[in-house]
Design a protein around this nucleic acid. Structure first.
Lengths: 208, 208
DNA sequence: TCGCATTCTTGACATCATGTCAAATACATT
DNA sequence: AATGTATTTGACATGATGTCAAGAATGCGA
């Protein structure tokens, strides 16, 4: 058989870059084909559709992100772990120029449900899977912290709460583009969950 | 001059319905024109572009939503107010069949940044404005609660945290479609912010 | 009452997107 | 070297956004 003239992973990296910067709606397969030096038809042959290509590219991203979260949550005091987790997440949202935001949140909102039939199942699965895995990792960190007396509470509810906040941060990033604001919310969340040992709150600083 | 053959507000209502159910990407001006019994060209004449039409329709929605939030946050104990606020928000996300989700979050992620140039300023403003106004209302409720001794803390930070959680709920709604989960997170958030007076936590109930 | 300016409507058109297909192509295997 | 097979390539169909010019309908002044 005839060998493929491009590297599959190269294309996925290039596609993720475009999708992340411009969104699914704002990216055409012609763009990606040009960037990758590949014919548009070859992309259809290799991946099937724009959505399928995005999903493949997204899965690479998700794997990397989960790995990084695991590393961030794996060492130090519970407060250090959570701080590292939020730090990683916010830095991720703010990477690129201009900042690219959160591909999970954006992809979830952009994909599927084009004709009244609900969100495409593959897509929903991909995004839900990431949220579930991150929640699990946070839960583990909280459970470990509980064993060491750093956390008293239900790790499940707290983990879900924390991950919900990270999703909210993704939305606020898009609305305000104010990184300092995101970091303030993150710090406040950690204080709430951990019981605000140490750390005094700065008065008057909620910007629009 | 020749009078317009359709009611402007009718079209905005019809457009919002489509946009809310199917998203901006999933709705064509032909759809809206058919629904409204209007020529597609007339929509361009009256509104300029699909995005502009969406923004106009969205502004109507935003006004209604802010009004409802104001009502929900205006009476009863602080806990009751916050409960009513979350209740309203989640019910809003879950309205329609299938549930339509949060138009703010979805619109924010779908619009703009098509060619590397950041999010369209009008769009960003519309969404940011809603978040800002809601945050302000929550802040007022917390400040009032603080006066009555129901809340001790910085209303600004707490309000922003609460609103961030509602944005996160919008994302999780889309990912899992599990209303009970959303309500659980909301209850937990209220407990965290208010200090968990009363209410025992149910163990083992974090579903994927 | 008539005509005119102004706005709205309508259909044609240009452009670009996704997605399909058949024919040409180039390698791997025998 | 011949052949099978997957890939490439360009043409095509469809549908979306957005523009434009010409026609239509009304309000208003003469």
């Amino acid at each position: 058989m005839r060998p493929r003239e491009f590297d599959n992973d190269d294309v996925l990296r290039i596609a993720l870059d475009r999708f992340w910067r411009n969104g699914v709606r704002g990216t055409s397969l012609s763009d990606i084909a040009r960037d990758a030096g590949v014919q548009r038809g070859s992309l259809y042959n290799a991946f099937g559709s724009k959505e399928a290509l995005f999903l493949r590219a997204y899965e690479r991203y998700a794997g990397d992100y989960v790995g990084a979260v695991q590393a961030a949550l794996g060492a130090g005091s519970l407060r250090k772990r959570l701080t590292a987790f939020f730090d990683l997440t916010i830095t991720n949202f703010r990477s690129g120029t201009p900042p690219r935001g959160c591909p999970t949140t954006r992809g979830l909102m952009e994909l599927g449900s084009a004709e009244g039939e609900g969100l495409d199942e593959d897509a929903r699965w991909a995004f839900a899977d990431l949220v579930t895995r991150i929640t699990g990792l946070v839960e583990d960190a909280l459970a470990a912290g509980a064993k060491r007396g750093e956390f008293s509470g239900a790790p499940e509810a707290a983990a879900l709460h924390i991950v919900t906040v990270t999703r909210g941060l993704a939305v606020l990033e898009r609305a305000f583009g104010d990184e300092a604001q995101l970091r303030k919310i993150a710090a406040h969340t950690i204080d709430l969950v951990l019981g605000k040992k140490s750390r005094q709150a700065e008065p008057r600083s909620h910007e629009r």
